[in-house]
Design a protein around this nucleic acid. Structure first.
Length: 285
DNA sequence: AATTGCGGCAACCGCCTAAGC
DNA sequence: GGCTTAGGCGGTTGCCGCAAT
């Protein structure tokens, strides 16, 4: 059983804030302070969740917020702090007076990440668009499933390594950085669960026809680019951060990376005796 | 001119943690 | 020490405007 919602949501407004609501919120806080956020909206006469009010205030209405474009210095600060701290947006925001964690997060995802790694950012964007498109059509995830695993539900290949491309970068490639574990290599249990749902728990029936293999997503371009990662030799020290002790507890996910991993599996087909207990021994070259 | 794709930003969701009881 | 709750955080999504076709 989950936690009770932070507030009674029935009858509360959601979505964009109106100018009137903003005014009400600002006036109330200027007069009384926010005090208890949960109780505040009622006192202020706002049909909003306390959490929503807090977010609106801290991210938008607070008087000390700097708006407008980030300066080059600010961007550099974000980049260097992100290298050290990872996705600790609030910590990064603490070093940038007037900037909010949400804003920094957005700037990172929209500008800076691209600057750091244009390919990865583009893929993430494409991935998002495709999902959006699917949602619009009310379609299911494109069926890029390992045909072997599909043929045999008990096939251990469904229990393989869960390392998205992004995690591969942070967990493996960036292992050399001082604090690699802090750099998004910390795959939380909730993340793992969510991704497991996406992948192996998915009850979708895969139907792969010839057109799939001709799909541009499986073209050499994407696969060679990805194979850079596939070629990683995973050192035991680095593997620890991103890869669990047991391969069997892990799974590849992210549908858009599926083509890549599928390719890897195909390439690694001969590795029937893939070591299950020591990921450090895994070499897919 | 209409449609489609994309980028940017605000807001929401769910989880975690610390404080209070 | 255990439970409950508010606040905080990071990830994700939805909406809107602009650009490309």
């Amino acid at each position: 059983m989950g936690r009770a919602p932070c507030c009674e949501k029935v009858g509360l407004r959601r979505g964009a804030w109106s100018a009137e609501e903003d005014r009400t919120l600002v006036e109330y806080i200027e007069r009384h302070g926010h005090g208890n956020w949960r109780a505040m909206p009622q006192k202020a006469g706002l049909l909003r969740c306390g959490k929503s009010c807090r977010l609106r205030w801290t991210n938008y209405l607070r008087p000390d917020i700097r708006r407008g474009n980030f300066t080059t210095e600010e961007e550099d600060t974000i980049i260097s702090l992100h290298e050290k701290l990872g996705n600790k947006w609030s910590a990064i925001a603490a070093s940038l007076p007037g900037r909010t964690d949400n804003e920094i997060k957005n700037v990172w995802h929209t500008y800076l990440k691209k600057r750091m790694d244009p390919k990865e950012a583009t893929q993430a964007s494409k991935k998002r668009r495709r999902k959006k498109k699917r949602d619009a059509k009310n379609e299911s995830e494109p069926e890029r499933v390992n045909p072997q695993a599909d043929a045999d539900p008990g096939n251990p290949r469904c229990d393989v390594i869960e390392v998205s491309v992004e995690e591969s970068y942070s967990g493996f490639s960036s292992a050399a950085t001082a604090d690699s574990s802090a750099v998004s290599g910390d795959v939380t249990s909730s993340n793992m669960e969510a991704r497991e749902e996406e992948s192996c728990d998915s009850k979708e029936v895969a139907v792969i026809d010839e057109s799939f293999w001709l799909d541009e997503a499986f073209s050499m371009e994407s696969s060679t680019e990805s194979m850079t990662l596939a070629s990683l030799e995973v050192p035991s020290s680095a593997a620890g951060a991103a890869v669990d002790e047991s391969l069997s507890s892990l799974s590849f996910t992210s549908s858009d990376d599926m083509d890549f991993w599928l390719k890897v599996f195909m390439e690694a087909e001969h590795l029937e005796d893939l070591p299950r207990s020591n990921p450090a021994d895994v070499r897919v070259i």
